[in-house]
């Protein structure tokens, strides 16, 4: 394999990593601050993608579509938090899993009822379509570069928010000791709604960005949700930094594993068997990575909880 192809594949891994980060950030914040397992996070990703496809079809503008995705997912998140999630904080994890699983079914069928059973159309805007030539002669799609830039910018913004703003202080305090900050006069239920809406908005943004190059359809969020859980387990639950490193690790492992493993087996097996074995092993690669990380650090790379 040439060096150029390898660099291109690393960029691909990076791109899928930053999108995973947008998903995992919300999931890890909600889990860290509220102690809640939210299976419906993938549905918020779907809500974002559908809102973007709807807005793009109505206005033709991709920027409006992104804004619509953020707004719709944040609104859906806030609504879900106030109507359902709020009643679950005191319950055990099994109840949370059951209730949020029910939310997946409700949101999926609700979306199907609103938008129909067929996949929707959402495309890359003209000003971001096509590919650019990077130094070294790599042809790379402009839209994927844009996704990497947006993802990194959001990550930087989120770090700033958590470490430098009052809201960030409250979020970190909420993670450390939620009774204490409630006693200190912070309106904890408002904080929870905000954190949940923030996580939902990030998931919605990821859904809209990815929806333009993938398919906007019911159930699109669940496969991503599984990966996002792997990411937060690797990174350490509750840690934004962990989610970022974990997302990049998972993105790179998945992309490079899928490309390199079949070629590795091709060195000593016949091509057809090598593709089969390599592809099967590549599907397992991220779970093997997770197992290795957990053996080495049982609470994840940057996990704070024992």
């Amino acid at each position: 394999m040439s060096a150029l192809l390898l660099i291109e594949q690393i960029l691909n891994g990076l791109q899928s990593g930053v999108m995973l980060f947008l998903m995992a950030a919300g999931l890890t914040l909600v889990f860290g601050v509220m102690g809640l397992i939210n299976l419906a996070h993938g549905s918020l990703y779907m809500v974002g993608a559908f809102a973007a496809a709807g807005a793009a079809a109505a206005t033709g503008s991709f920027v409006v579509a992104l804004v619509a995705a953020l707004a719709a997912a944040a609104a859906a998140g806030a609504l879900i938090e106030m109507l359902v999630i709020r009643r679950l904080y005191e319950r055990d994890h099994l109840d949370q899993v059951l209730a949020t699983f029910a939310l997946i079914l409700i949101l999926s069928e609700g979306t199907r009822w609103l938008f129909g059973s067929f996949p929707l159309y959402l495309d890359v805007p003209d000003w971001l379509s096509g590919s650019v030539t990077l130094p070294g002669g790599i042809q790379y799609p402009l839209y994927r570069l844009a996704i990497i830039v947006v993802g990194l910018a959001v990550a930087a913004g989120l770090f700033g928010l958590i470490s430098r703003t009052r809201l960030g202080i409250r979020i970190r305090a909420g993670e450390a000791d939620r009774e204490m900050i409630a006693a200190l006069g912070v309106d904890i239920s408002k904080l929870y709604t905000m954190v949940f809406a923030l996580g939902a908005a990030l998931a919605g943004l990821a859904g809209a960005l990815v929806g333009a190059i993938q398919s906007v359809q019911v159930g699109m969020g669940e496969p991503v949700l599984i990966l996002a859980f792997v990411v937060i387990v690797i990174g350490g639950i509750g840690s934004i930094k962990g989610a970022f490193i974990g997302a990049l690790l998972v993105g790179l492992t998945e992309t490079l594993g899928g490309v390199l493993l079949p070629q590795l087996f091709g060195l000593f097996m016949d091509p057809s068997a090598a593709t089969t074995v390599g592809a099967s092993l590549a599907s397992m690669a991220i779970y093997i990575l997770m197992a290795v990380v957990l053996i080495w650090r049982p609470s994840g790379l940057f996990g704070v909880r024992a």
């Binding site: 691909n12 990815v210 699109m220 496969p223 992309t255």
Partner: peptide
């Protein structure tokens, strides 16, 4: 799978 960037590069 939903992302085919790696396969398209191949």
């Amino acid at each position: 799978q939903t992302d085919y960037a790696a396969e398209i590069a191949q």
